[in-house]
Design a protein around this nucleic acid. Structure first.
Lengths: 243, 243
DNA sequence: CAGTGGTCTAGACCACGGG
DNA sequence: CCGTGGTCTAGACCACTGG
């Protein structure tokens, strides 16, 4: 997997974010698009693509006829739900030091409902991966991942499992990961979960992600359930009016 | 508020959605971009803008060198979290008949935390709006909205309040609504809420949206908290890898 | 009115895949 | 290889705001 040069749009995005972090636009105002494009040596279209993405992320906002401005609220958003990021990064963005504990990797029977979502009703067992993510010393995320074992085409070690499953798939399953279809569910933690996450007794309500991962052929290849200590890990997103 | 012609991109989007609904692409395959653009009489750029949006919504997926395809999973997604839609529409998308009950509209003191988020610490009271949304006969969403009363510049009737607050703002407050910054929170329903939503005694865990609405000048103008019966209203979204 | 962002076009070239 | 989608450009015109 070689990295190719990030697209111009990506580079412009990163460049502008950098300048925002450096508080270069002290009054919160961007230069006109034409000037900025010329300065960066890209077409206005390319610059505008980057600006549109930054606006969708809540970093800036634009007003026709008026200008482009740095958004104050956008700076508060630690997480953008519609983007998949490693849980370690998520924890780091919240200001903690992340650790992963690989609790278990086993092939075992699972509920029919899980298998159905993977179009794997005929399989008896799935590969079940359990992980615990710590923020400092505090467990904050617990995840269970289900993978049909027949997808795996190369031998792997536990270390290969420690990272996100969407990194594992292309490397060991000849599957390109495309997207998660995620359902957000509130959960009253059962004792085993409260135990695993070392929840204080008065805090048993958690946020959970119920995810189905699809490959680039739009076939479901993996399912996962993740539980979050929402009091420590905040899930925020920017919502806009549908057109 | 006059409607202007929807942009070409919007029109193309709607047109393609329509053709997908009509199952016109039986094998799930789109024509090549160049052909489709010519057929629709738009430039390839315009067509591609529409396709990109449809892809982001999970309706289609594209593979370089291979083609553009209708996504199966995308058809299952009833809700896209990053888009604001009226709760009535949300309920209808779930196959129920929606009703709104305006429970109360009162000016009253609120917690300092709410006022702080609205930069209204110096106000003693805010306008507090409580609504209940039914799916058929079943209460499924309860919402509380907080609005600084001094924003209102025109007299209004209760009927003007029944709709979404982001429609009220431009009409009665001379404020253009821009976006919500939303935090997703799991909640163990207190008795008053379980009562309002007529929850079965074993179902007290709810999903809540904690929202701050911003105007086009990026100033907070409204706060809202909505509680969802997640067993009846599913909140799903498509998540993609961050670039 | 001048200056800003919003929309749309035609055309070029690149990267990837197996119709 | 050819055909697909991916990227980028230069330029035109429109819509809106009050620098």
């Amino acid at each position: 997997m070689l990295r190719r040069t990030p697209s111009l749009v990506q580079q412009v995005k990163m460049h502008l974010k950098q300048r925002i972090r450096a508080a270069e636009f002290a009054d919160g105002r961007f230069p006109p698009e034409a000037d900025l494009a010329r300065e960066l040596g890209v077409s206005r279209n390319t610059l505008r693509d980057a600006l549109s993405q930054l606006e969708a992320e809540g970093v800036i906002f634009r007003r026709q006829g008026a200008g482009t401005f740095v958004s104050q609220a956008g700076l508060m958003v630690k997480t953008r739900l519609e983007e998949i990021i490693p849980y370690e990064t998520l924890i780091r963005q919240h200001g903690y030091n992340p650790t992963v504990k690989l609790l278990s990797v086993r092939q075992e029977p699972v509920e029919p409902e899980i298998k159905a979502g993977l179009e794997a009703e005929n399989l008896s067992d799935l590969l079940v991966i359990k992980k615990l993510f710590l923020a400092g010393d505090t467990p904050v995320i617990f995840s269970i991942t289900y993978l049909p074992p027949h997808l795996i085409t190369r031998p792997y070690t536990p270390d290969d499992i420690r990272g996100p499953i969407y990194r594992f798939l292309p490397r060991f399953c000849q599957q390109e990961f495309a997207y998660y279809l995620t359902e957000i569910v509130p959960v009253d933690a059962p004792p085993w979960l409260a135990d695993t996450l070392q929840l204080p007794s008065h805090r048993t309500v958690l946020l959970a992600f119920d995810e189905t991962g699809y490959n680039q052929d739009d076939r479901p290849v993996v399912r996962a359930r993740s539980y979050f200590r929402h009091d420590l890990i905040r899930l925020r997103l920017v919502r806009r009016l549908a057109v």
